[in-house]
Design a protein around this nucleic acid. Structure first.
Lengths: 144, 144
DNA sequence: CTACGTGCAAACGGTTTGCACTAGA
DNA sequence: TCTAGTGCAAACCGTTTGCACGTAG
């Protein structure tokens, strides 16, 4: 966690930005949540921060590759999570009932199959791929 | 194409809705485009339709499983495409530069690997999966 | 001391809704 | 005929912006 804050401070610093209490709070909440949060949830969890500061800080943290936005299927708005640089590559299980998004790490087998498929797409279409995003959607355990 | 309209008419009919000129126009545009369109693009292509009608019709077509919404990574709003029931299972290549989304059908090998991974996730997490969504992001041929 | 960051309130823009009118079966 | 669909304009609401004040370094 200290390590995380250190990396974040460094990334903000090299962009000429400060690691203020508000920004630290956002990173803390995202880290302890352990899964993507909606802006609404972030606003609620960090009640001392004003709406505009949350939006402004998320934009800055995104530009510094500290967080990233995830477009959500269920319509409760965009979600935010710590960048994969900081948490490691993973995917999401999305519950169509409660809308929650949970992290999941898939076996190496599937990741390498995806890498192979990506290479094939690149060579047949001329598209240059930088990465992939996979979501399994369905019903989570507590909603069944 | 006639076949498509027939299926759509049937799905609308069984929901007590009519297949009007406006709805047919939306389906036509989505079909000829051959890839997901933003609402803005749809509004532009079907200029005879009012904004409110487009939104209302998209909601109805979505409820009847004729179209589906795709949350977009690049922030030009939500995209709409014909439902996979009508077009077949596929994924998307998303260009981070121009924002375009192109359909791609992946080899059976990767689909079965995804199915295997999904089954594993279901048994280890209790999540009940209904399907998956995969997007490869990068730079399209014309943006390189 | 001098940016940068913050809160507040107003502005913005995509989406939705109310209502009177039109059109499909 | 009679219900569903449509256009227009207003309302809505999540997000962004302007501005004056606060704070980190």
């Amino acid at each position: 966690m200290d390590e995380l804050h250190e990396v974040v401070e460094q990334r903000l610093g090299s962009a000429g930005s400060r690691y203020t209490r508000g920004r630290r709070r956002l990173v803390d909440e995202l880290c302890t949540a352990g899964h993507p949060l909606t802006v609404r949830e972030l606003l609620h969890r960090a009640e001392t921060l004003s709406t505009s500061s949350v939006y402004r800080n998320l934009a800055i943290l995104e530009a510094c590759r500290v967080v990233r936005q995830i477009p959500s299927l269920s319509d409760d708005g965009v979600r935010v999570e710590l960048h994969e640089d900081l948490t490691g590559h993973h995917h999401h299980l999305g519950c169509s009932s409660c809308g929650d998004l949970v992290d999941v790490v898939l076996p190496e087998e599937i990741e390498s199959a995806l890498a192979r498929a990506t290479a094939e797409v690149e060579s047949t279409t001329g598209f240059r791929a930088e990465g992939h995003r996979l979501e399994l959607f369905g019903t989570c355990h507590s909603c069944q």
